[in-house]
Nucleic acid binder design. Structure first.
Length: 270
DNA sequence: CCATATGTTAAAAG
DNA sequence: ACTTTTAACATATG
């Protein structure tokens, strides 16, 4: 689930409750989640330090550490959430799946893939049911494009409006613009009334500007209301559903390698 | 058993 | 050489 809005939520949770607490122990024994590190690598690097700041670019987040230590990179993958507990055991969850009824309220212990135990007795854990998330030291973010929430108009035009790949594939490419996932892409394309299948390079400048406008609006809405699931068209990504604006049938196909839904009338310009 | 899933990326194809 | 597409990754669920 985690796309830019959820990762921002997770980042805020870490910023509010995970900083300046001494790290007393680290469980980095999940060798897939912590790839390519070996068990003990993260523990050795982090014990005795504390997190001092939480950053995000696109769907990647990382924390600075005290004493000039390495950055702690966290990627939530397809199902990651951050769970922080206070010394008294109170839980705060970041990047939660608002509106997804399938996620059980109580997680199984084995879904916790990485744990920082603080000297005060609390913890910061990565809860990742599908195990495609990642924790690593000094993550390489050089391949990421500018953050989707802050990319400028000129840069957006140049990066998104080129190539023969479908517009949606272009939006999902994290090296073009970072932070857009499958649901947010559908939401934003619907808001901008653009056909996801159109070759990105064929868009007019006015269409790219409107797309960026709706991208920012869609992100703001999702951050404010609790995740990409709160988007207007998201509940209508299902067979038999209709466009909440015009009532025309929603249609489905694979675009950019991902299941894609769009309004057959307003976005059917191909 | 089959299909699907909010992400990334290496490999293959063009 | 560069861009685009596909498959694989690990796991859960309907």
């Amino acid at each position: 689930m985690p796309e830019l809005p959820e990762v921002e939520s997770a980042r805020q949770v870490v910023e509010a409750g995970g900083l300046h607490r001494e790290i007393a122990d680290v469980d980095d024994t999940d060798t897939y989640e912590c790839r390519p590190h070996q068990p003990g690598d993260l523990r050795t690097a982090l014990v005795g330090r504390s997190l001092t700041a939480a950053h995000r670019q696109g769907k990647s987040m990382w924390c600075d550490t005290s004493g000039d230590g390495p950055a702690l990179g966290i990627h939530l993958g397809m199902s990651g959430r951050i769970v922080i507990t206070s010394p008294e055991g109170e839980r705060v969850v970041g990047g939660d799946y608002e509106g997804t009824p399938k996620v059980p309220r109580v997680a199984k212990d084995e879904w916790y893939r990485f744990t920082l135990t603080f000297a005060d007795g609390g913890t910061l854990r990565l809860l990742d049911k599908r195990r495609l998330g990642r924790v690593r030291l000094d993550p390489d973010l050089s391949a990421l494009g500018p953050d989707a929430e802050h990319v400028g108009r000129e840069e957006f035009r140049e990066r998104v409006g080129k190539g023969t790949a479908p517009l949606k594939a272009r939006l999902l490419d994290q090296s073009v613009v970072a932070g857009i996932g499958n649901l947010l892409a559908d939401e934003v394309l619907w808001r901008a009334k653009l056909d996801p299948r159109r070759p990105a390079g064929e868009l007019r400048t006015s269409e790219l500007d409107e797309l960026r406008r709706q991208l920012r609006a869609g992100i703001r809405h999702a951050v404010k209301h609790g995740g990409v699931h709160t988007g207007e068209v998201i509940p209508h990504r299902a067979s038999g559903e209709h466009c909440p604006r015009c009532g025309a049938p929603m249609v489905r196909a694979t675009v950019g390698g991902r299941t894609t839904w769009w309004c057959s009338q307003e976005q059917g310009t191909l």
